[in-house]
Amino acid sequence: MMNFTLNGKVVSVDAEGDMPLLWALRDMLGMTGTKYGCGMALCGACTVHLDGQAVRACTLPMSLVQGKKVTTIEGLAVDASHPVQQAWKEHNVPQCGYCQSGQMMSAAALLAKHPNPDDNTIDEQMQGNICRCGTYPRIKAAIKTAAKLGGKS
């Protein structure tokens, strides 16, 4: 059994140590907000926070999750009140929405490290997240808005 803290609650799953966190979350814990996009840490759709760091759940083996704290989109904030979620709403960022869990988790981790990121920092920190719908211009704008909202809270 693997034990870890998921969105503030201790959970245990009967997963092999080599199973990536993504599949434990989705198939065993029913947490489908974290998405599969590539399975090779190339697209960022599966981004979650591991002890506060943005990681790709599709390549993170459960053996490295044991005893750690995991936050997924479902646990980012109560009532979608995180500055990133508010800013995403304000800019009508999503199109299909599939990659947006990962985008928001990456953005939240970015803002935790860089409260006022410039364009280069955003490019650098967000280039691991692909959006096929092409919401990048709005993601950039929303991250700047979230930075302002974050500053106020």
Binding site: G30, M31, T32, E74, A80, Q85, W88, P94, G97, M104
Partner: peptide
Amino acid sequence: DMPAILSGQTVFGQDVQ
């Protein structure tokens, strides 16, 4: 679908269980 997307509650084809 904005509220569901923001909170990870959407159901796509891959998410059906």
